[in-house]
Design a protein around this nucleic acid. Structure first.
Lengths: 148, 148, 148, 148
DNA sequence: TTTT
DNA sequence: TTTT
C-alpha cells in the first residue's frame, strides 16, 4: 500500500536523441529532453504558446528500448515520478535539478524513421564518467541513484 | 485542443503552513512545500522509504483558500503542471528551480485543526518583495509569472 | 476546492469517425469509440495483448473540433471523467452504460488525412432523436446530461 | 513499451466494507464501491453536487490488504484501469459492466477505526460461488479474469 | 520541513 | 451505498 502519490504524465517531443550510458555498476540509464507545449487564448484574445522543457531519466531495459527506437523530434508519452537531485558544481556550490524518472514511455504517432548509421552515435559508453559537473549541467546519475 | 500534456498529481503532507503573498500587480500567490513518501521492499527484503519534497505554487482564489484552510502536516492531493524558472542569485549565477503550478488542491482526511490565533501568522503581506534571492532560495514569482 | 477526484486518461485509436449530434436544446455532443491496447508478457513468457473499448463523450466546441479533425484510426489522448448512465431498453429493463466525459482531447501523431468529401458524412443532425434505445445501444445524451 | 494508456485515478469514499472472495482457482479478489463527489457552481451561481459510483476490483495481496484495513466511509485514492465485462443474466440477455481494476490503493486521512469484532463479517469465503448473476448484479470475476 |  |  503506497503512502503517497508522486506521478507525472507528459506528452511532448524529444529535443534530441536519447543519450544512453551505463553506471559504473553496469546499469543502463538514458537521459532525454522533452518539450511539452501549452497553447491557450489569453484575455486579450491572443493566441499564446509556452514550451516547457523536461529532463527525463529512464533506467534499465526501458532505457535501451528508448535509445534503440526514439530519435529527436519523436512524440512520446512519459509516465514517471518527480525527483530532485542535489549536486555540487566546480565552484563548490549546491545546485538542484529536478528530473522525471520514467516508468513508462510510449511511442506516439508514426513509426520512427530508420535510425541513421551515424558512426558517431554511440550507445552505452564503455566508460561512464562521474567527474564533477562542468558548465552548469547536472552530473550523470550513478549507482546510488538506481531505483531497483 | 491542447498540443501536449504536462500533468503532475501528488498526494502528500505539507511541510509547513502555506505562505501567501501578493504580486506587485495584486495577484494572490501561495507557496507550499509538499512531501511525498514512497515505500517499497528492496531485493534484500528490507523495507525502504524515500521522501521527495516538492515546491507547489498556487494562484488566485485557490491560493487564498489554501492559506485559509491548510496547515503544516495536512494531507492534500495536488494536480498541476511542471514549470522550471530561471533566476539569478547574488553571485550573478544562473539557477533553475522546478515547481508544480497547481490547478487543483484537495484537502484529504479529517477537517483541519482549528487555526491557531497566532498573531504572527499573517496572510497577504502588505509589501511583497522582489529583491534578489538570498541564501539560495528562488525569488518569489511576480506578475510576469501570472498564468492568466 | 474539489471534494474528490474522478480522472481518466487514455491513449488509443478511434474505432470509427466521431459522431456529432445536437441535443434538443442545441448543444453539440460527439460520441467516439476508442480502443486502448495493453501488451505484456505472461508468466509463460508469451506475448499477450488485450484491447479495451471505451465510449467517449465530448461536449460543445471540443465536440465540433473532434468531428472536424478526427477520423477512424486516428491516435488520440483523452482526459476526462467517468460517468455511468442508467437507461431503459425496449423490454423496459434497466441498463447501465459507463462513458468517459472528455475534457481534453489531443490529436497524436501525424496530421490527419484530408477529410473525404463524402456527402453521406454529416455532422450535427437536423433532428437529434431521443426515442427509446433500440438494439441494446444506450440512448443519446440529452440536455439533462449537459455538464455546464 | 506499452501501446496505449488506460489509466483511472479516483479519490472518494467507500460505500461499504470491501467484499473479499477467492476465485475457484484460489486467487483473492476484492470488490469495493467508491463514491466520488464533484462540486461546482453553475451558471446561476448555485452550488451543485454530483456523486458518481464506481465499481473497484482489486486482486491478490492488495485485495487482502484492502479487506483488512478499509471500512465503509473510508477515503481512498485508487489508481487502475478501465475494463468492461460482458455477462449474461437470468433472462439470457447480454449485460455490460465497467469496472476499475485497481493497481494501487492508498488509504487517505486518519487511521481507520478499529475493526469491529463482528463475527458475521468474514473475509475470504470458503466457497466462492459462480452461479448465474441474479437481480441485475454482474457475476463475480473468475480465474479467466485474473490479470497475472 | 511532512507523514506512517 | 460514501463523504463534506
Amino acid at each position: 500500500m503506497m503512502e503517497g502519490l508522486n506521478k507525472v504524465m507528459l506528452i511532448g517531443n524529444l529535443g534530441a536523441d536519447p543519450e544512453l550510458r551505463a553506471t559504473p555498476g553496469g546499469k543502463a540509464v538514458a537521459n532525454m529532453r522533452l518539450a511539452t507545449t501549452d497553447t491557450w487564448t489569453d484575455k486579450a484574445g491572443e493566441k499564446r504558446e509556452r514550451t516547457e522543457w523536461h529532463r527525463i531519466v529512464v533506467w534499465g531495459k526501458l532505457a535501451e528500448l528508448c535509445h534503440q527506437h526514439l530519435t529527436k523530434g519523436r512524440q512520446v508519452f512519459v509516465e514517471g515520478q518527480l525527483q530532485t537531485r542535489e549536486w555540487t558544481d566546480k565552484e563548490n556550490r549546491k545546485n538542484f535539478t529536478t528530473e522525471v524518472i520514467a516508468t513508462q514511455v510510449t511511442f506516439l504517432g508514426q513509426r520512427p524513421d530508420q535510425r541513421s548509421a551515424d558512426p558517431t552515435r554511440t550507445g552505452s559508453r564503455g566508460a561512464a564518467t562521474q567527474e564533477p559537473a562542468s558548465d552548469g549541467q547536472p552530473p550523470p546519475m550513478d549507482d546510488a541513484d538506481v531505483p531497483f
